[in-house]
């Protein structure tokens, strides 16, 4: 049992993270052409709205929720110190989770029933969406069963996750957690593992720099100030490849 736990909560995360970093960086540097959101809205646009929008907005909020609990756990604990606020947090998270689930269900339904979308689907799309559906259901289950889940995350899981990142893995807390939460953790590792091999790559290239970039872009093949200058250097080097 211990070996099994070690594999799931220590080896798997390192494996997932290593593959995530090596894989995504390799793919970004070498097969850039294949990084795309692979939008299918051009083939079907109406049903996509009821899938993609609730799914992604729910995801954005829950992603930041998890991120805050990971980076500044005290903030969550302080917020949850008041029962009403705890309730607000849990209800809000549950609502976003539900929005994700409804959205993803619509996406999966659309992907598997629309002839045109089926043509542009790979088996990896189904794997990813399957993983995500399981992950969301587990998340909702936790929210429903363990109302103080958010505090638990901040107080117990955050130290565990940090221990992974600080290369001193301590899995004692996780091993004592209920099974649903353990499965949710394993699910997260599998999703991280899937990034370099799937369309999830698109999340890593979210176009945030658009916000501060000027609208127009002009690219010069040469430096327009220097190109006519008579002072350009004449090199005595021989070509490197001759």
């Amino acid at each position: 049992m211990n070996i099994f736990n070690t594999f799931l909560f220590v080896i798997l995360p390192y494996l997932a993270l290593a593959i995530f970093f090596i894989g995504t960086i390799y793919r970004y540097r070498n097969v850039k052409f294949q990084i795309s959101s692979l939008s299918s809205g051009f083939l079907e646009g109406k049903k996509l709205f009821w899938g993609s929008v609730p799914f992604h907005w729910g995801l954005v909020f829950l992603f930041f929720g998890h991120l805050i609990a990971f980076l500044i756990p005290q903030s969550v604990l302080i917020w949850n110190s008041h029962p009403v606020r705890l309730l607000v947090l849990e209800v809000a998270s549950f609502a976003f989770g539900l929005s994700m689930l409804v959205g993803l269900a619509n996406l999966i339904y659309r992907r598997s029933t629309n002839d045109r979308i089926r043509v542009v689907s790979t088996w990896m799309d189904y794997v990813v969406e399957g993983l995500l559906v399981i992950q969301i259901i587990l998340g909702l289950w936790i929210a429903l069963e363990y109302r103080w889940g958010s505090s638990w995350f901040a107080s117990s899981l955050t130290p565990y996750l940090w221990s992974i990142f600080l290369l001193e893995p301590r899995m004692d807390v996780v091993v004592a957690m209920p099974l649903v939460i353990q499965l949710h953790i394993i699910g997260a590792y599998l999703i991280v593992l899937a990034f370099p091999f799937s369309r999830l790559m698109h999340a890593l290239v979210a176009p945030l720099d658009y916000i501060w970039r000027p609208y127009q872009r002009v690219i010069w093949n040469w430096n327009k100030g220097k190109v006519r200058s008579t002072a350009t250097k004449w090199t005595i080097h021989r070509p490197r490849n001759n």
């Binding site: 290239v205 176009p207 720099d209 658009y210 970039r213 127009q216 872009r217 002009v218 690219i219 010069w220 093949n221 327009k224």
Partner: peptide, 8 residues
């Protein structure tokens, strides 16, 4: 993503 540009 800034993929489209005008050649100077």
């Amino acid at each position: 993503s800034g993929a489209i540009y005008k050649r100077g």
